[in-house]
Design a protein around this nucleic acid. Structure first.
Lengths: 225, 225
DNA sequence: AGAAAAACCATATAAACTTTATGGTTTTTC
DNA sequence: GAAAAACCATAAAGTTTATATGGTTTTTCT
């Protein structure tokens, strides 16, 4: 980010108060060598429009994206994650930062893979100081993760067990209460295979001969769900 | 870490100046509610002795470990990584922090899996302020990673390709210049298998029909080495 | 430039692992 | 305590991975 005078930020959150908070804090602060101009959007569609317009107009340097966006219209529900993917496509040079209420492993892992954001802030950890530190870091030396995000990331990194997509799907369905016998409708494996894999994962987790409750809690412990 | 008055730290580095630096900075600073007492060790053996003695005496709360330790005697070369594993075994409640010259992905990934340290500092990024911040964070809200460590971690997290241990070993040996035909001495696979795996990894990386140089650089890009 | 080494490729066979079908036992659930 | 679901075991089929072998291409060194 060369010697730009004004850093243009687009903050997207369906709670207007939130983006307003960001705006007041960041526009008022005098950063070293630049100042912030903040735009806001309240929905996926509004944000998409502004992002697309920015290509021919003034470009954004930073996107602050909430993950939960109320779906403005019918059709497939679009999340902040999709918005992040879109932003990466359209403005590959801009920084993408997630501002999320979630600090669960599954969400963070998924976003780290699909978007690889330059920052991830858990909302309960956001204050004036961390907001400013995030902007500085993200511009000059990304990434910036708040502590709770770091804890999820650490859990994932410390994990030496590798599960393939089918294993992860099984764990996910277990966690949302899908019955094993019904998983054949969601996963292209036979029932004995699924049973086998569950047994295998349990042994990887060191909880042989225990029930599914133990499997779920261990998977959660290890950051898979 | 309840209401302890003195936090006992053991710093291990074969450069005495380094541990002395830590000692002066941390013992002089007045933390909120505690002060630091620093012990130092210059070799694996000396550190091991002090760790084992601490069990029956005054326990350590934090270990600051260099990864490169000159091997004091013959026998298998022990690294700071081994020391970390040992510390975890003997003092499971203590914090383990690596102070490393390395910021390469392979080293960091390996340590994140084998020790899962509460902190990782790249030496070029250590100064008085970061040292103090590390102590505070590691005691109250681990983990603490410096920016370069974070960058390696981010790369790894963003990666969706999963390689098994043999694949990683092949990449590692490639990176240190081991000839493919000699890898059979380090990896329990036949030569054709190794060739096959290399081809397979290249296709995963999207660099089919290219040479080993391309493979190494792509593996480095993706955070495997 | 040319010989030697290493890398690379292709094929066939062997070995290891996964999936599946089937039929049974144990545990949960209501 | 009956029904449902989970769990287990075995054998056969299918798939993947490893290996042996022998060849071609590329790199390296002089």
């Amino acid at each position: 980010m060369e010697d730009i005078q004004t850093i243009r930020v687009l903050a997207v959150d369906d709670h207007e108060m939130t983006t307003l908070g960001y705006k007041f804090i960041l526009e008022d602060y005098s950063f070293n060598g630049y100042r912030i101009h903040m735009d806001t959007a309240k929905s996926f569609e509004e944000a998409e429009t502004k992002i697309r317009q920015s290509v021919t107009g003034l470009p954004y340097h930073i996107f602050l994206l909430d993950i939960q966006l109320s779906s403005g219209r019918e059709g497939p529900v679009k999340s902040g994650e999709d918005l992040g993917i879109l932003a990466r496509e359209i403005c590959p040079d801009a920084r993408v930062v997630f501002m999320s209420s979630f600090s669960d492993n599954y969400r963070i892992n998924s976003i780290m893979q699909s978007v690889d954001p330059d920052g991830y802030m858990v909302k309960t950890e956001i204050d004036e100081e961390s907001l400013r530190a995030m902007v500085e870091t993200v511009l000059h030396n990304p990434p910036y993760y708040t502590q709770k995000a770091l804890m999820a990331i650490r859990k994932k990194m410390a994990n030496r067990i590798e599960l393939d997509d089918n294993d992860k799907r099984i764990l996910y369905h277990l966690s949302i209460g899908t019955k094993t016998k019904d998983m054949v409708n969601h996963i292209s494996l036979s029932l004995p295979s699924i049973e086998n894999r569950k047994r295998h994962i349990k042994s990887l987790f060191g909880i042989e001969k225990q029930n599914d409750q133990a499997l779920i809690s261990e998977a959660r412990n290890r950051g898979f769900i």
